[in-house]
Computed example of a mutant assay.
Amino acid sequence: MTTTTRQWLLADHPRGRGVEDSDFKLAETELPDPGDGEMLLKTRWLSFDPAQKGWMENIADYVAPMAIGDVMRGGAISEVVESRDGKFAVGDLVMGTTGWTEYHISDGAGLVRVDTELPPTAMMSVLGTTGVTAYCGLFKIGKPVAGDTVLVSGAAGATGSVVGQLAKIAGCRVVGIAGGPDKCKWLVDEAGYDAAIDYKAGGVRGQIKEHCPRGVNVIFDNVGGAILDDMLGEIATGARVVICGGISRYETGDLPAGPKNYFNLIFRRASMEGFIVLDWADEFPAIRKRLEGFVQDGRLAYREDIQHGFENAPQTLKRLFTGANRGKQMLEL
């Protein structure tokens, strides 16, 4: 018996502009019955990350390019609804890059079982790519030590909010940059940041000077552009600058101008390094267990922004680039 499924397909490459509704096409197709060793998966939640725009543009060369007509790439948590001696049993929840589709046939390759005492969606938020990205970027590249001042841009986002809390656990003073008083209040009141800077209020560099009087030892940058330039202007001697993302360029598609203050890397004997979290994929299970422990003992708070309805997938992705989301962006089918 075939299964009818709706899928969102890539209809255009959004280069040099923001994501638009016309970049996607809603289609319907028939899936065959699963074969021996295969499973039929029903998507329960979709995951959304800024990196998806880079995948659509075919700028990110660490993943395969996307062609017009491909199912939109993205992570998901799915339920196994049929299994013919497959890797997972009926009723199991699994996570992987299955794309924007209501149903999917899989042999289990690239999927992991949702294994957590937290709600299942935590596997795509605090325990997912955002959580392990925060952990690896901070500890593998930033290498904070107790007493350091850590400055995080995009601090109220799913990754940034975890970075700051992990830095607090490591004994650091943590300052976050976010947009708007509500996000800044959440950073201080719930995420435990020592201070928050509202970039929408202007005067970012002056606020950095105020809250980081001895300079910044670790920068964790999710934004790029002018914000990164302001942060580089206030680094301390021996600082480590972690480049995780550049959401400031996602709406235009233009690469940001080189930071004017990059010479501070010389004056302060500092380093600046980018990373792809997949380089530490073999460590993800152990990192997830550690992150879960921090949540359970109350040292790590997280937020999830869950939209609803498969037809709203494009609009949900666009929320990331307007700052509308509050925490990890997901969609429940």
Score class of each variant (00 low, 15 high):
13 H>P: 01
14 P>I: 13
17 R>F: 05
19 V>T: 13
32 P>Y: 08
33 D>C: 07
34 P>K: 05
42 K>W: 07
59 I>K: 15
63 V>M: 15
65 P>A: 11
65 P>F: 10
69 G>C: 06
72 M>C: 13
73 R>D: 08
74 G>D: 02
74 G>Q: 02
79 E>M: 10
90 V>S: 07
94 V>C: 05
97 T>Q: 02
100 W>Q: 02
100 W>N: 03
100 W>D: 04
105 I>Y: 00
110 G>V: 10
112 V>K: 14
121 T>H: 11
122 A>K: 00
128 G>W: 00
137 G>L: 01
138 L>W: 01
139 F>M: 14
144 P>C: 07
149 T>I: 07
156 A>Q: 00
163 V>W: 04
165 Q>F: 07
173 R>I: 04
173 R>V: 08
181 P>D: 13
182 D>F: 08
183 K>S: 05
184 C>T: 04
187 L>Y: 01
188 V>M: 13
189 D>Q: 12
196 A>I: 06
197 I>G: 00
205 R>E: 15
206 G>P: 02
206 G>M: 08
212 C>M: 13
213 P>Y: 03
213 P>L: 08
218 V>R: 00
227 I>Q: 14
228 L>F: 05
233 G>Y: 08
247 I>W: 02
252 T>S: 14
253 G>A: 03
260 K>S: 14
261 N>C: 05
264 N>C: 10
271 S>I: 06
271 S>Q: 13
275 F>C: 12
285 P>N: 10
293 G>Q: 11
293 G>C: 14
299 R>V: 07
300 L>V: 10
311 E>W: 04
318 K>Y: 05
321 F>R: 01
324 A>L: 13
